[in-house]
């Protein structure tokens, strides 16, 4: 499974648990329109760290969080191993 599909699978799982309806997952979807609140994102980042072994937002120099789904996925794709 690609990183992207792993991220989408994790998002769908959390959406089900937290009872939120996800819009179609597209690259330019703003993260604040996913229906996820900050807690849901925290759970997502934690699960992805478990699954992929990385947390790009801890590794990053600056504290900025991406604003679209595409940027979020790229943060995981581009993380230095």
């Amino acid at each position: 499974m690609s990183v992207k599909s792993k991220i989408f699978a994790a998002m769908k799982q959390i959406a089900e648990e937290q009872k939120v309806t996800l819009p179609p997952l597209e690259d330019d979807l703003p993260l604040n329109e996913t229906g996820f609140d900050s807690l849901a994102f925290a759970i997502l980042v934690a699960r992805l760290e478990d699954e992929l072994g990385v947390d790009p937002f801890t590794v990053a120099e600056d504290a900025a969080f991406p604003s679209t789904l595409g940027e979020f996925v790229r943060a995981y794709e581009n993380v230095p191993a």
């Binding site: 648990e17 925290a42 759970i43 980042v45 934690a46 760290e49």
Partner: peptide, 8 residues
């Protein structure tokens, strides 16, 4: 806590 969050 983030591990706990992942575990629920």
């Amino acid at each position: 806590a983030r591990q706990m969050m992942a575990d629920g």
